[in-house]
Amino acid sequence: MNPYRALGEYKFWRSAIANKSIFNIENIWLPKFSIKPRTRISTYGSCFAQHIARHFRERGYKWVNREPAPKTLSDESKRRFSYEIFSSRSGNIYTTSYLYQLLRYAFQLETPPELLWEKGDRFYDPLRPSIEPDGFLSKEELLRSREVFLSSFRESVVDCDVFVFTLGLTESWFDVSGFEYPICPGTVAGEFDQDRHLFKNQGYNSVKRSLVDSIKLMREHNPRLKFLLTVSPVPLTATMSGHHVLPATTYSKSTLRAVAGDLAESRRYVDYFPSYELISSAHTRGIFYDTNARTVVPNGVSFVMDKFFECLGPVDRKGTHAPPRVSATDDVLCDEEILDSFSTSERP
């Protein structure tokens, strides 16, 4: 007799994975808390979080949208201006430290820097450089929009039951003043200044501390708030770590995965959903990635989200399990992908 004999079949690789079709994997996630259609859900994070938001919305769940677009704005324009992608118009939040920084601004523990970028007669917000693709009309308009965003972001934390966050990167860029940029200056907007802009590849402790601080701050303002963490299965577009992009990706994802796992293990109000494993593990043989071995194909997203809702169990409202239409053009807005345009192999 040994303790492995009492384990269920989904604890063994052969019975849970090797002998099954990847589409029939069961019990991949046992939710710690219920998420029902009436549960108010806010979603933020890296590119992959956008899929989660869309699926919640289209399956009839109460997805929080605290910064709605004007009602006549078309879906195409909403995408262009980053509406209805996250629960407020945050743009991608790739790192836990950037999340914590935004939370400090939103809850007025700190004031955002006066910093802004000018290009021609247009103005770009370093907090959300791609939010207005052609920049803002004036400095005043930019600051007013930033204020609207920060209050909407705060409301989306206070007025929700579950905060879903997808961890994306460990690699980050800071200003010498300590301000963290959401993406390297000079890529989406702004000018890169090597004396001013500092690269930092964050380690486990740094990532964890920022996430713990973020969760603590959010629960101070919303004590019943629960968290669902995921890790983006999308590999790095580029790395500044000095290493090859493949091990750099593994380092980044492993760190994020370890932090998410540890927090989920140690806190009853934090859970982890294994979207990363469902897409990227060896058993899938990469079928959920596009030919660039990086982009997750729409069917991969649907597969993950179907598993997610399957694991949540039956729901008490008609129609909520109906998955949204899979579209081959269902792209996400991903600031980080701009780094690919700086690849020497792409240069003429």
Binding site: E67, A69, P70, K71, T72, L73, S74, E76, S77, R80, F81, E132, D134, F136, L137, E141, R144, S145, V148
Partner: peptide, 27 residues
Amino acid sequence: FYSYFPFDASRYSDAVLQNSCLDSFSN
């Protein structure tokens, strides 16, 4: 074609507002 326009227009940039007007007509 309805000329709806947000009452709280100051929440939006001029570019967003103009696009929403144009979308309302074009679509």
